[in-house]
Nucleic acid binder design. Structure first.
Lengths: 196, 196
DNA sequence: CTCGAATGAGACAATCTTGTATCGTTCGAG
DNA sequence: CTCGAACGATACAAGATTGTCTCATTCGAG
């Protein structure tokens, strides 16, 4: 018997590539039969919601280490943030579609789970603000959403072959923290463009 | 006769809310009949691709002012970047789904359009690097993808009611440029958490 | 006003998807 | 080894979606 987690992750993998994949496509992508899929999950909607719940569980696992940092210092916060980004990278690729699927969005249980998750992340980000490691003039909600946006962007960049999987962890973290503006504003160096 | 642009924008609005909306739902959302929709676009796939082409056109319109800045200075570059973000915000909300829909992604014409678009944006971002206004250690492709990620994140934040439409322009721009790390690292101010 | 093009409403068959049931087979615990 | 649970394959009906068609109506240019 295939474990439920493998099955849901396989379904998520297929659905991440095509949000509107049919049960036949999902079963074929997993490598199982449509009969088994229908036996496990009564309807396609039920499968979708199960994947969404699985997504919440996985992301909750990524967020767990953050709770220990409530009485941490700046160094511990930075380490936890980096750990969070690295842990979230594959999750964003696999489960990102759940936040955009109308079927999933309509599920109150999913919305409630996301709300709990958001509040947990917001507490962590607010801690970063109090520690002086995150800007105090940005809404924590925006920091959380923008982090997910960067994670999604990295996943798309890898999908399109424009980014290497190895570098996206660093890219997301440095963009999230430092942005794309050079840290030390150069006084006035023309630096003419090199000839092609 | 309803103009083609209005029709496509209406379809995009419906599809942005539900990627797998049927022709009946799309027609109802636009306020027209399914017959008219089918007369204009032979198949649903054709409609999807037409929306995608429209998306490319609109984004091309947002990118047009950037070409004039090829021989610009730092100030002009900053202004063009801000203008770009503001122009791109509604487009990201309306047409963001095109970059994630399997049907659209499979269209060679769309991929070619996106490629041309990417190269145009990349040239602009590379100009920013030469002007010293953007970090030279980040791949231009990542800057472009991350900007779209932030635009998407802002749109989702508004959709969920966690962000106000008025502020997202500033949020995207400041996150893209400066990140979420405080600009001036505070020496050692404890700043105890305020009582709840 | 007149006429033609575009529209809305509806019917129709073909196809796809889904949910359910049945059959024989495989696989692992006892 | 034995047996029962889970599996793959297949068939079936019900429903939804799509693409095409017809017909009456509306709307605007001339």
């Amino acid at each position: 018997m295939v474990h439920e987690e493998e099955l849901l992750d396989g379904a998520a993998r297929v659905l991440a590539g095509d949000h509107s994949a049919s049960m036949v496509q999902i079963a074929a992508g997993i490598g199982t039969s449509r009969a088994t899929l229908s036996r496990r999950y009564a309807t396609r909607e039920a499968l979708l919601k199960a994947v969404a719940v699985r997504a919440i569980d996985v992301v909750d696992g990524c967020l767990a280490p953050l709770d220990l940092a409530q009485n941490a210092d700046a160094t511990a916060f930075d380490a936890a943030l980096e750990e969070l980004v690295v842990a979230l990278l594959p999750a964003a690729h696999l489960y990102g579609f759940t936040s955009r699927d109308a079927t999933v969005l309509a599920d109150p249980a999913f919305r409630a789970g996301v709300d709990r998750q958001d509040h947990r992340a917001l507490a962590f980000l607010a801690l970063g603000q109090r520690l002086g490691r995150l800007r105090a003039d940005l809404p924590p909600y925006w920091m959380w959403y923008s982090l997910w946006g960067l994670l999604d962007a990295a996943a798309e960049g890898v999908r399109d072959g424009h980014l290497a999987p190895r570098q996206i962890g660093h890219l997301v973290l440095t963009s999230f923290l430092s942005g794309t503006r050079p840290s030390a504003p150069p006084p006035a160096r023309p630096q003419a463009a090199a000839a092609p």
